[in-house]
Write a protein that binds this DNA or RNA. Structure first.
Lengths: 231, 231
DNA sequence: TTTTGTGAATTGCTTCACAGCA
DNA sequence: TGCTGTGAAGCAATTCACAAAA
């Protein structure tokens, strides 16, 4: 995973930038004109100082005594995230999850357009996962040409864990530059390739941990270490 | 979001614990008996010191000169995460994403069982999203009784953004303790409620940012600040 | 007033480096 | 020798607190 941060911007700040944008878009939809760092922070469970510091990493967007102008900031943040233009995206995997992602309506207004879907299973090739669009499932052999012709830079992987690594290689070889991976496996790729990973079970595990609490055996100190080996 | 950490364990360490478990399960499936912190780290893009430090937060699991015994550590980590027992989970939202999550086969072996699915749309109530299971979509009115009867503690929300907040309240009132939220909106709930959020567009935005690079206007310093206001 | 942007202080996390065990 | 567990050091992120702008 490309955890670059070669610029001086903290990784967590970039993650939060997406959340600020989402909140700002919601405010804009409600015709809100300005918002303060305090209000933005409250909506997202952050301090006002955190919000100001984060935004200040990218420029000076605020107006003292006023706050941030919503529409102005939306434009700026989109430009920073690179979603002021539309990205063409391909999807590999036409199983349950792949088809659901393909049909998901939320990507478009965020600047992402899934323009192609691939699968290696002959039984689904040629079918139309979303009847409202004229996009058939294509065989993997057409990857290279489609990536080139449609100028695709991002790929979503919704394939089984045991295929993910090889599919990742294939899409990168075809010219894709970044990957959103839904397969429950760690991809081993060049450091320079941006990878985002979503493992559905991992998120449930984090909830489980918080509810189960830290284990009754928090941490033994060095004094007791002598008694530790059990075999 | 409950970012508690009332214990002394770093939040990032808990997140990585899930990744260690996933990797360890994969090693176990390949009949690997032991693994070193170095090998575990390499597979996940972490340093060996990071792996040892993380695991040491939870106990002393390693064997000097040998490494970690895979099966032993799998058992220990499952117990720490609370997934050594099965959690009953409910799902709200029988749209494309909700049905895909309901049909997803990966949860069970991780200790999560989706035992009920709800929707407020009368047109889908009574239908069977997964024909291989005898679980019909239920109306929201049956939430309370089902949560109680099936001893459900976790809920997955796959509803539209504008319903998510009220649905979250409903499931909490029904007795649910933690929420995995797929709606692209920040839930405002009591600090004590664990919430995990997955926003599909947010992950694509992070890739977009990494490919677009930090903006050509990185950060003006105080000297140039005088020239900054544009309106 | 209100609210930003930002150095300084603080808190948190990761890496180093090595004693000790197998 | 190989490898863990862990204090200490170093680095990164957050919070504080206040001058300056509207």
């Amino acid at each position: 995973m490309a955890t670059s941060r070669s610029n001086g911007i903290p990784v967590p700040a970039v993650r939060r930038l997406s959340l600020y944008l989402r909140q700002l878009e919601s405010l804009a939809a409600n015709s809100r004109k300005t918002v303060s760092s305090r209000q933005l922070g409250e909506a997202l469970g952050l301090t006002d100082a955190q919000v100001r510091k984060d935004l200040a990493y990218f420029g000076q967007f605020g107006h003292p005594g006023v706050g941030y102008r919503v529409n102005e900031l939306v434009t700026r943040v989109r430009s920073i995230l690179g979603t002021d233009k539309t990205w063409n995206v391909l999807l590999v995997g036409a199983g349950n999850l792949g088809r659901a992602l393909f049909c998901y309506r939320g990507f478009t207004k965020k600047g992402f357009q899934i323009v192609a879907i691939f699968d290696r299973n002959p039984a689904v090739i040629g079918t139309h996962p979303d009847p409202s669009r004229r996009i058939p499932v294509q065989p993997m052999g057409e990857l290279d040409e489609t990536v080139r012709r449609r100028n695709i830079r991002l790929a979503i992987l919704a394939v089984p864990a045991d295929h993910a690594q090889s599919v990742a290689r294939e899409v990168l070889d075809a010219g894709v530059r970044g990957i959103l991976n839904f397969a429950p496996v760690a991809l081993r790729l060049d450091e320079s390739v941006p990878v985002a990973a979503v493992d559905l079970s991992v998120h449930l595990e984090q909830l489980s941990f918080q509810l189960a609490g830290a284990p009754p055996q928090p941490k033994r100190n060095a004094v007791h270490a002598a008694a530790r080996r059990r075999r």
